[in-house]
Design a protein around this nucleic acid. Structure first.
Length: 414
RNA sequence: GGAGAGAUACCUAAGCGGUCAAAGGGGAUGGACUGUAAAUCCAUUGGCAACGCCUUCGAAGGUUCGAAUCCUUCUCUCUCCA
């Protein structure tokens, strides 16, 4: 099967009821993608120091394109990040400082390398600050501003939606800058396809329009569906916030657990999107019913963790998960805090220890957890809020704290 | 620049002089049930070595025995007009 159809089947391209692609500017792109080698891009604004699972879909698209022999371009939004994309948002994002954007950009760059191969003849990474920041205002308006119709822009969903809540001129310009990005990439790299999230439709179309006017050439756009989980919430949000791809913000174990705990109804969808397993295999897994689905969830968790954190971390996370939910009740990859021998000799108040472990953030919360009967130390329920934890609780140099059924922290004594 | 409306906890949204640490909903957390799932049910949801005390209703002042609630000024947001 060829790449366009692969993307379609795996769910990267939204489908209509009858299975035909829904969000493609021009059906010609199917033949082009299937039969030629082209250059395609997706832009990423550096709004945070790490990507999260919500961004993963777009990254996977580029990885698939590369595997199919196309040349992906990653556009890092060093310039557009300073403006802020209003698409899909109900209110203006906090303006990022120039330094923060720079910092975020640097750490994001490293993350791409786990999914996409860069280098001679391979994928390209560019920063739109390189051309956007040096633009001359009046010159830019005369050369490109004249191609944009305000009337037209106002009808784009991403702008229209903001007519209610308000839209600053700064954000209004985002679309123009992104369109200009596409034009530059077309001119410089022959890039003819832009992909992006569902909310990027307006921005992408606007870029295609600009290229048509300036260069008289037809380019293409495909958007990916906006992912929500079966329960309707946004993909990649947990109680603790976003599911980060950075191991320091979100440990491989927790990452593994995120996938291990997805809703039954999402398993097949996620296997298609977030692993490289062949579809035949995924179809087989979709036959699993009821509690058997857990096997599919394990595979999903393992494969997804492998892609983001590497095989070694995935093996470790899987091992630890099995041991924690099985007999052993320990593991190296679970979130770990350290405590000193001296501190323990004096004895430490459980509530203090729970707070230290990060399981809860205040004494009151820790106290409530114990009172609700959800706090455990080394698998024994903590019965009293007055418990003093001493060396007698240490086994093999560590203690395992647990809140509820799933939240584990390892306390390492040193 | 002119006229009006508003700002309440993680979000939403009641309260409009004491009974307010602040209803309801959502979310989150713990428990029951399960399959580390969903749905459902119960409980908890400002802080504090805690039947008490301390700090919170945009900010600062004021009125009052008593303020989220009334008054003044300020900041910000929205709507209409220019």
């Amino acid at each position: 099967m060829q790449i366009f159809d692969v993307l379609l089947e795996r769910g990267f391209i939204a489908r209509n009821e009858d299975g035909t692609p829904k969000q493609v500017t021009n059906p010609e792109i199917r033949d082009i993608l299937n039969n030629k080698k082209i250059t395609a891009y997706i832009g990423f604004d550096p709004t945070a120091s790490s990507f999260h699972v919500g961004n993963l879909l777009q990254i996977m698209v580029l990885a698939h394109l590369q595997r199919a022999g196309h040349r992906p371009i990653v556009v890092v939004g060093g310039g557009t990040g300073l403006v802020g994309d209003p698409s899909g948002k109900t209110e203006m994002r906090k303006m990022l400082t120039v330094e923060k954007v720079q910092e975020n950009m640097n750490s994001q760059k490293e993350q791409f390398k786990r999914y996409i191969e860069f280098g001679e003849g391979k994928a390209i990474m560019v920063n739109n600050a390189d051309w956007l920041l040096s633009l001359n205002y009046v010159e830019f308006l005369r050369d490109y501003g004249r191609h944009f119709s305000v009337n037209r822009m106002l009808t784009a969903d991403c702008i229209k939606n903001r007519m209610e809540t308000g839209l600053s001129f700064l954000e209004f310009n985002y679309m123009i800058l992104q369109s200009y990005d596409f034009l530059r990439l077309y001119q410089q790299y022959g890039c003819i396809l832009q992909m992006g999230g569902d909310d990027q439709w307006g921005n992408i179309c606007s870029g295609i329009e600009l290229i048509r006017r300036v260069e008289g050439k037809e380019c293409y756009g495909i958007t990916c569906p906006l992912l929500t989980t079966a329960t309707g919430s946004k993909m990649g949000k947990t109680e603790k916030g976003a599911v980060w791809l950075d191991a320091n913000l979100f440990s491989p174990y927790e990452f593994y657990q995120y996938w291990r705990n997805v809703d039954d109804r999402d398993v097949i969808k996620f296997l298609s999107l977030f692993t490289f397993l062949p579809m035949e295999e995924i179809h087989k897994l979709s036959q699993l019913k009821d509690s058997k689905i857990n096997e599919a969830k394990e595979i999903l968790a393992f494969e997804a963790t492998k892609i983001t954190h590497g095989e070694k971390a995935a093996v470790q996370a899987q091992q630890d998960a099995r041991s924690l939910f099985g007999e052993q009740k320990t593991g190296e990859s679970i979130p770990t805090v350290e405590i000193s021998q001296q501190e323990l000799q004096k004895g430490i108040w459980v509530i203090e220890l729970i707070k230290k472990s990060g399981l809860e953030t205040s004494n009151s919360e820790a106290r409530r957890l114990i009172q609700k009967g959800g706090a455990y130390i080394n698998q024994d329920k903590i019965e009293s809020i007055d418990l003093q934890v001493t060396e007698s609780f240490v086994k093999d140099g560590e203690m395992i704290l647990r809140a509820g059924k799933k939240r584990y922290v390892r306390v390492l004594v040193k």
